[in-house]
Design a protein around this nucleic acid. Structure first.
Length: 288
DNA sequence: ATTTATGTTTACAG
DNA sequence: CCTGTAAACATAAA
């Protein structure tokens, strides 16, 4: 689930909750989740303070006061859930089921206990996600492999046009999913952005008109911004921080709506195909 | 009861 | 170079 808006939501919520807190204990329940031997990992993190919480692409970064960075990638099913000592959870990511979360549970891969006894849990049903300790250099390397942030000033129409022209042979969806061009878009927001721009996801970049490119550029920014305002999307049981569902679900026009009537033309039905290796949704009438 | 798809990314084969 | 598939894994939908 977590694409840019979901991770950004987590960042904002966690930042206010854990900044300046000291980590007094780290418990690793699944060794494969982390990038160091458990002992090393624990040694590097224990007794450190949270200096800053940030985001790059779909990664959440917790900078510690010893120049190390705890970097999280939630992949498909990862979640970060923060609970105060009283047990109220105020940060989510991709909770399961509808009921209250019992933590730690069978999907908890590791957790961090702060000195005020609040706890940050990393859950991940499918174990695709990871938590790494990286120094500044490692982090830089990873960052360099990622493209521009869609909400950054550098994501100009000019930049978009130029980068697209270098990838004319690809389809627009293939391009948008590749993190090295624009970082943070995933399956949901690519399909949604394409719908809002009136472009079929499997259209070749070479076939896009200048007007379409301009439209898509502004549409991506608007869609991501709106999604962040709504604290992200989740198709099923996702709940944000405060235990609420991400409200962007209400704004989905095509994702998860196959065989349902298009909300724009109210005539045709949303189609779902497999493209770029992913389920791809579009209105055959409104998108060309 | 089986099979297929699922929000991600990387590695590898062709 | 590009493109498609498998692989990490568990669950729900088809």
């Amino acid at each position: 689930m977590p694409e840019l808006p979901e991770v950004e939501t987590l960042k904002r919520e966690l930042s206010s909750k854990i900044k300046n807190k000291k980590i007094k204990e780290v418990v690793v329940l699944n060794e494969k989740t982390i990038n160091l031997p458990v002992d090393d990992f624990i040694k590097k993190v224990t007794k450190r303070k949270v200096a800053q919480v940030s985001r790059r692409a779909k990664m959440l970064i917790i900078k510690l006061d010893n120049k190390k960075n705890l970097v999280f990638h939630l992949k498909m099913t990862g979640q970060l859930i923060f609970k105060t000592k009283s047990g109220k959870h105020i940060s989510g990511g991709h909770p399961q089921k509808g009921g209250e979360l019992d933590l730690p549970n069978k999907y908890t891969r590791m957790y961090f206990v702060f000195s005020d006894d609040s706890i940050l849990y990393f859950n991940d049903m499918r174990k695709f996600g990871w938590v790494k300790i990286l120094n500044e250099e490692n982090l830089q390397e990873i960052s360099l492999r990622h493209g521009v942030e869609p909400l950054d000033k550098k994501f100009t129409l000019n930049f978009f046009q130029n980068t697209l022209s270098k990838n004319a042979g690809k389809t627009i969806k293939q391009f948008l999913l590749e993190q090295k061009h624009i970082a943070g878009l995933g399956n949901i927001y690519v399909d949604e952005s394409c719908f809002r721009a009136g472009i079929r996801p499997n259209k070749r970049i070479a076939e896009l008109s200048p007007v379409e490119i301009k439209k898509l550029h502004s549409t991506i920014i608007k869609t991501i911004n709106l999604a962040i305002l709504n604290k992200g999307t989740s198709t099923r049981d996702y709940r944000t921080s405060s235990g609420q569902t991400g409200n962007f679900v209400k704004h989905l026009k095509v994702y998860g709506r196959h065989k349902q009537r298009c909300l724009k033309c109210k005539t045709y039905f949303i189609e779902k195909i497999k493209h770029a290796g992913r389920g791809t949704h579009y209105c055959p009438n409104c998108q060309r």
